[in-house]
Amino acid sequence: MPASSPSIAAREHGPRGVAIRIAGLTRSFGDNQVLKGLDLTVPPGQFLAIVGRSGCGKSTLLRILAGLDRPTGGDVALTAEAGRVASARIMFQEPRLLPWASVLANVEVGLGSGRRAPGARQQALETLSAVGLLQRAGEWPSVLSGGQKQRVALARALVSRPGFLALDEPLGALDALTRIEMQALLERVWLDQGFTAVLVTHDVGEALALADRILLIEDGRVTADIGVDVPRPRRRGSVTLARLEEDILRRIVGPSVSPDYDI
């Protein structure tokens, strides 16, 4: 796909993204308040990255968005375009494939109860082909490499064509080269399908390679909201990206070095 803006690409296929609106979101585990009144609006089809230190609450936020956890207080609303179901899928840091199911059957898990519908197998095969693993459809997951397993997990997440994809550091455990490949694959399927994506990551470079917008979360609150207005496909190591990366890294690690930072 050329350097067209994502919103245009999504429009070509009809917008499928889910809009997210969060107001005053709190989540506590016992006495420990992890999210402290968080407000956020994500327009349909946006690729949002959330960065922050370990334990800042970014994963908790993502799990709440994906429906794996419930907020203690506040509102979370995922709304789809009229006539569509606001379906959410999550991709974990580990592939979490069923070792006793073939690669294809693992992708079919993503279809939920619709996996027995006519055409379901075809849909699974097409998604598998989109992640480049069609020829491995009949194999056990245990013979795949780490990157291939994560591609199967991506196919499983995408096969039901969700309106929202939550990504919990899905590339964290991969080697550097496989990571770059997977980032390109993620960008391609996102441009192609136009879902709303929220990526939690430690890697600011990865956030900049993929996201329209980067959110910095510190101590349970949003402390920076940065638009990344760089055309796609983005060139790794471009000066603009490098400046942005430095800027964001300084905000994350900066306070201890220079206490007078502002946003």
Partner: peptide
């Protein structure tokens, strides 16, 4: 983690048992 995955993909109790717990 597999059980959580199954839940997030909408498996009911019976599906969870037959496709994840028993195998």
């Amino acid at each position: 983690q597999l059980v959580e995955m199954g839940r997030s993909y909408g498996m009911g109790r019976f599906d969870l048992f037959r496709r994840i717990i028993l195998p």
